[in-house]
Amino acid sequence: MHPILKLVSQRIALGLLLLVSSSAMIFGLTEALPGDAAQAVLGQSATPEALENLRREMGLDRPALVRYVEWLGGIVQGDLGTSITNRLDIATSIGSRLSNTLFLAFWAAVVSVPLAIFLGLLAVRYQNRWPDKAISGVTLATISIPEFLIGYVLVYFLAVQMGWFSPLALINDTMTLGEKLHSIALPVAVLTMVVLAHMMRMTRAAILNVMQSAYIETAELKGLSSFDVIRKHAFPNAIAPIVTVVMLNLAYLVVGVVVVEVVFVYPGMGQFLVDAVVKRDVPVVLACGVIFAAIYISLNLAADVVSILANPRLRHPK
């Protein structure tokens, strides 16, 4: 077996194991919280008899392990359960929300990842000179300011004062791609600012580390321009750490957008999750938790796989 196949399949198996154990953890934690779905439906003033009846009806009187296995079996078949507040199938209601969140995260990534890497390369090229310091300063500032504040500042200037964008990022299926993009421009900008610094600084550090190598000197002595030396010789050897941090930030874009979605009233997963928590809709919270965990784990898994593939020693064994 090719060593890469072996390593990659090991990682995937590990990822699946991680996913199952995190689902168990999410389930266990919601179990440990006081009160359950029956309590949430009937409220604090319900009589013990009514609670008992509803629990039997919802199957909550059975042992937790049985319910966990049943729940997990449902997820594997695409059944995320039923919401207890509106009695709707969760998978259906999450579907559009999730695709909205992914849409937002995708465009934020399309803008921020190339920009971060380019700025990182630029910072290395002009190391310790003013472009490097300017890039570091600006990105550090944007990461230090809380995202809701950046969001409101952008809304105030670009939407309210200038009127270029709508303060609310509302999208629906009847809009064209152009309209959708215009609508989500502000949240994309905020998300970009939040993730840019981390990725840019990691790119810079990883490349600077590689710049100490003897093969960089070889490249310089070939008469290549400084930018070509960095792009062609340093960057390919710094891919693994860069991809790791890029994937971490992508995961953040999907999972951590709650605040930004709320600021722009964007119909994504974040809002959905916040609503469910407020209404103590345990099955929905569970479903959201598992989806977030799956996204997080698969992105990190992808980072691992790319790092393995980026290693020429593994890709081309002796």
Partner: peptide
């Protein structure tokens, strides 16, 4: 003018 270094192992880019 070109250059041949002491350690070719370190002077070749491992990724190419």
């Amino acid at each position: 003018v070109t250059y041949v270094s002491q350690s070719a192992a370190a002077s070749f880019n491992p990724a190419k």
